[in-house]
């Protein structure tokens, strides 16, 4: 089943890549603040289009 080996290896590379990305992002402080981003995204309209804001 060479295809199985191919798939497992490819899937592992993808998973491994994401693992690296995860560690990197934690290291870079991406998740230091796990609340503010969820609120900040509510205020991202352009200044010419703010008339719809509450």
């Amino acid at each position: 089943m060479s295809a199985l080996v191919v798939l497992i290896v490819v899937s592992m590379i993808v998973a491994g890549g994401f693992l690296g990305l995860f560690i990197f992002s934690v290291k870079k402080g991406q998740y230091d603040d796990d609340y503010t981003p969820s609120v900040r995204m509510l205020f991202d309209d352009g200044v010419t289009n703010t008339d719809k804001q509450p």
């Binding site: 998973a15 994401f18 995860f22 796990d34 609340y35 969820s38 995204m41 509510l42 509450p54």
Partner: peptide, 22 residues
């Protein structure tokens, strides 16, 4: 016009989902 219920949960959702799905 309100923040997602739990931002932390959304992060966990993301990372766990992608590692299992494949």
């Amino acid at each position: 016009n309100r923040p997602v219920y739990s931002y932390k949960l959304s992060i966990i959702h993301f990372w766990s989902l992608i590692f299992i799905y494949i």
